[in-house]
Structures are given as structure tokens and as C-alpha cells.
């Protein structure tokens, strides 16, 4: 789930001050565990806040584990699903919630490929580039999307259109190799994607 717009998203719900320990991010340096600012390549999101109902849902997730730290990937997913990317404030908020130093969360964002440090397009196209899909034409498919959307097919990493509508990215095997080439548009899988089918997918992205 991506936010509806690519301009800074206002979270729904009230900017929260929850009784359960401050839903807004503590300013850097104030958490008992945070003695140093993180060497951050992360974006700023000054209006970051987590509404109470989301805090409650996240606390429920934290409760799934004997140790809070275990919940960090799940919290990062939840935050990214809501805001479209992971900001410095989000990292600090999660760290505070899990009683960790921000670096412990930041190092996950830089390790796991699915976490985005930049706002991605409203529609995130992930195209599998691994062998079975490559044999099935995934490089041609990637090229097709890039040329249709005016993106550089040979640029490094994810490419986002100027209007912020589309992000096109090569990813590794998506575990659907029998129906190559395979891609995802946001959460949905598309299999056996011909260029005609690719155009249909783009059509549906409104």
C-alpha cells in the first residue's frame, strides 16, 4: 500500500501523543539509548507522527515476540506501507518504541533491499531479473517499461518518473520462475508478462 499522493503525505488521524509513551518521535539525542545522532542518509520528515490506532496495532505486533527488538522488521514494513518510505524520524520513532539505539534500526534500512529511503512512485514496478525470467524476456520487459516511462534502463538502482507516479526497479528472483517473466506492481504479482500485458498494467495504474 502506497500513499495516494507523492507530495508529503499527511498521516490520517491526529498527530498523536499517546499515553503509552509518546507516539511522536523523540528529538534526536533524547532517548535514553540514543546518545549519538545516526550518520543518516535518510530523508527528513518533520511532520512524522503515528496515530494512536496504528500505535496500538504496532504494539500488538511487538507483543508477538519475547524480545521487542524482533519486531523491528515488522514495524519498518508497517511504517513504509503507510508513508511510502522510511524517514529519519520513522527510524528514531521505531527505535524509541523498541528501546533500541536508532543505529540498530538504521542498519536494517540499509541492509534489506525492500526498505526505501526515498519516496518511491505511487506505482512501484518490480521486475525480476534473475535467470529464468531473463531467459523469458525480463530485460526486454524492463527496457519496455523504461522507454515508455522515459526512464534510463541502464541507470543504477530504482528509477522514478519525474511526476512521481512510477518507480521501475529490477529485483532478484520473485519465486514464480515457472511463469517468467514475472513482475510486481505494488503488492500484486503479474506473471508471464508480455509487452502487451505490460501496457495493460500501465493502463490500470491510475
Amino acid at each position: 500500500m502506497k500513499p495516494d499522493t507523492v507530495s508529503p503525505t499527511k498521516p490520517s488521524g491526529t498527530p498523536a501523543e499517546s499515553a503509552a509513551g509518546g507516539a511522536t518521535a523523540p528529538p534526536a539525542g533524547e532517548s535514553p539509548h540514543n546518545t549519538q545522532p545516526i550518520p543518516s542518509s535518510l530523508r527528513e520528515q518533520p511532520d512524522f507522527s503515528v496515530p494512536p490506532e496504528m500505535t496500538a496495532a504496532l504494539d500488538e505486533l511487538i507483543g508477538h515476540y519475547p524480545k521487542k527488538r524482533s519486531a523491528s522488521l515488522m514495524l519498518l514494513h508497517a511504517v513504509q506501507e503507510r508513508y511510502g518510505y522510511v524517514s529519519r524520524q520513522a527510524v528514531e520513532w521505531i527505535a524509541a518504541r523498541l528501546e533500541l539505539a536508532p543505529i540498530n534500526v538504521y542498519e536494517l534500512v540499509t541492509f534489506y533491499p525492500m526498505f526505501q529511503r526515498e519516496r518511491t512512485g505511487k506505482f512501484h514496478l518490480r521486475i525480476c531479473r534473475t535467470l529464468s525470467c531473463a531467459l523469458g524476456g525480463s530485460y526486454e520487459l524492463h527496457e519496455h517499461f523504461c522507454s515508455k516511462l522515459g526512464l534510463d534502463a541502464h541507470g543504477h538502482g530504482a528509477q522514478t518518473t519525474r511526476d512521481g507516479k512510477f518507480t521501475v526497479e529490477f529485483v532478484e528472483c520473485l519465486a514464480s520462475c515457472g511463469t517468467a517473466p514475472v513482475m510486481m506492481c505494488n503488492d500484486a504479482f503479474y506473471e508471464g508478462v508480455s509487452t502487451a500485458k505490460a501496457d495493460e498494467i500501465l493502463e490500470k495504474c491510475k
Binding site: T130, L131, S132, E172, C173, A175, S176, C177, G178
Partner: peptide, 11 residues
């Protein structure tokens, strides 16, 4: 995790 390229059975 089903991440070994070529594998799509667990799914």
C-alpha cells in the same frame, strides 16, 4: 523465505 532462484513450490 523461498529465495533460491528457480524455486516456486512453497508459494
Amino acid at each position: 523465505d523461498e529465495s533460491e532462484p528457480g524455486t516456486f513450490k512453497d508459494k
